[in-house]
Nucleic acid binder design. Structure first.
Length: 517
DNA sequence: AGTGCAGTTGACTTT
DNA sequence: TAAAGTCAACTGCAC
């Protein structure tokens, strides 16, 4: 008779501390199998790219290393979840599956619904006295951070946040978990060999050896290392450098990919900040700490918004914007979109940021907002044409932050003010010496500092005088000022429509925390 | 020393 | 986590 086991299913919670499912299986009556599944449907989703799965792979390596101390390891499969569970069922009898709720994309939401159904249909014939002869697999999910499933309003949400964030972290004593031993997993491994091989390919692909050098590496250990380097040194000028495209790379926490993939939690980072805030050593860090804490707070606010309104993956949060008129000439759309995606718009700060994002998976918040602003406003393209591109580039892609932010910056919520960034002004203010532009737009590397913001204004005389190299850097694909002006008129006029205001009232009632604005 | 004036700063409004 | 415009108060300076 197959041995009865329970499964802890890892998804975007790739850590061993502050992990509710792991606390659940302390002193578990049955052996515990740890599982991660690379799911083809999720991998194929246009929001994701190889860099994400590389990060996951690295995170899993970190967990395997830690689990050596407990003589077990995570079972890693490359299959849809049903195939994976069926394979496990061929050797064991699964009684419970424990996991975190995933505030995710449609692709994982559909998977979750199908899995719930599957669990109900897969009655365990083999007896477990307590569960009874017809027990189905029970799938038990634990809440993600401070986010609440099925919330329809935000009354008391602010208080709830503070209550939950101050609760002790869910740190299991791993030595109290009856992990399945490696020996028992051998047979299972034999059957999943092909999966492992596919894993290896992912890991060893030579193109990624090169790319990895510019991307942050995944793993719980890396997460804490990154946080400590922020707290020990890098974060001193957090508030001051946060908007600079170059300095933010050093002075910001850089925890975002670790938080997104669950190597570290908001609660862990917030509590650490809290415990240090009043200590002698950090007296001069008050501004940095306040700014950081406020961002950790906003994190859950946005994810909660997405949880309560997940249709925003496909449509405007404010339904009235379905009638908004974007550029519709297919030639123009395709030309503009391709220039934006590849960092060839001819606007240096825009191209520098897109190229940096492609190469490193990271740019700071303000520059992300600016890229969306240029896409949606100056280029007048439907935000949905760019939303997958940026998701696939952000190493820290988090659905619950990406969509609310993207729509807000695209100005289609009707509740926020219209943020129409002037890329030239941003360039001059945030990258005054052109350090960032020269780093990423090599065509302008030899230009005098003050000319890199608007290279098209350099006259032939100056070009000759300064012996500037002739190069292939494009002229701006649009007239920036004229497009901004047109966008301003278009956006403000549309926002005044009664149907926009009507849906804006609905959105405010549903998503705004009383007293937060 | 007080006045006129160009230029700056900051609060506030509009888009 | 916007930008531009408006306006009043202020500043520095020449006369």
């Amino acid at each position: 008779m197959p041995q009865a086991i329970d499964v802890v299913w890892f998804k975007r919670d790739l850590r061993l501390r502050d992990h509710l499912p792991l606390v659940q299986v302390q002193h578990n009556p049955r052996p515990v199998l740890l599982l991660y599944v690379f799911e083809p449907d999720v991998i194929a989703d246009p929001h994701y790219s190889l860099r994400h799965w590389r990060f996951v792979y690295q995170s899993l390596q970190d967990l395997q290393l830690q689990l050596q101390d407990y003589a077990t390891e995570i079972v890693i499969m490359h299959a849809d979840i049903f195939t994976a569970l069926t394979l496990i069922q061929s050797q064991f009898t699964i009684m419970h599956i424990y996991s975190h709720e995933e505030i995710g994309l449609d692709v994982t939401y559909r998977r979750d619904k199908a899995l719930a159904q599957w669990c109900n249909n897969n009655a365990n014939i083999d007896t477990d006295i307590q569960a009874g002869p017809n027990a189905s697999i029970r799938w038990i999910e634990f809440p993600y951070s401070v986010v609440r499933r099925g919330l329809t309003h935000r009354k008391d949400w602010g208080r709830y946040w503070h209550e939950v964030i101050d609760l002790p972290c869910a740190d299991a004593d791993l030595s109290c978990i009856p992990f399945i031993s490696r020996a028992l997993l051998t047979e299972l491994h034999a059957q999943t060999n092909t999966a492992i091989e596919q894993q290896q390919c992912l890991a060893l692909d030579p193109q990624w050896q090169e790319v990895d050098k510019q991307l942050q590496l995944g793993g719980e250990k890396r997460a804490w290392h990154t946080y400590y380097s922020f707290l020990n040194k890098r974060g001193k000028n957090y508030a001051k450098h946060i908007s600079s495209p170059s300095l933010s790379r050093h002075s910001c926490s850089r925890l975002s990919p670790y938080i997104a993939w669950g190597n570290i939690t908001i609660k862990q980072t917030y509590q650490k900040l809290d415990s240090l805030a009043l200590t002698e050593a950090y007296l001069s860090w008050r501004r940095a700490f306040t700014a950081m804490a406020s961002r950790l707070h906003w994190h859950c606010h946005f994810i909660q918004k997405f949880e309560s309104e997940c249709a925003m993956e496909y449509r405007h949060l404010n339904i009235a914007y379905d009638a908004y008129h974007y550029e519709s000439d297919p030639e123009v759309v395709s030309q503009r979109l391709s220039a934006w995606k590849t960092g060839m718009t001819g606007i240096p700060i825009v191209d520098a940021n897109m190229r940096a994002l492609i190469a490193t998976g990271y740019i700071n918040f303000r520059m992300r907002a600016m890229l969306v602003s240029v896409l949606a406003h100056h280029l007048n393209l439907d935000w949905r044409l760019g939303v997958h591109h940026m998701a696939s580039l952000f190493l820290d892609f988090e659905p619950g932050i990406h969509y609310p932010q993207f729509q807000m910056q695209a100005g289609v919520t009707g509740t926020n003010t219209i943020r129409l960034y002037n890329p030239i002004k941003q360039s001059q203010e945030r990258d005054p010496q052109g350090v960032f532009i020269k780093r990423w737009v090599h065509e302008l590397a030899e230009f005098p500092d003050d000319m890199v913001h608007t290279p098209w204004l350099v006259s032939p005389m100056e070009q000759q005088l300064f012996a500037l190299p002739s190069n292939n850097y494009p002229e701006p694909i649009v007239d920036i000022e004229a497009c901004a002006s047109a966008a301003r008129d278009r956006l403000w006029a549309f926002k005044k429509r009664p149907e926009v205001k009507k849906d804006a009232r609905r959105i405010l009632n549903r998503h705004i925390v009383p007293g937060s604005r």
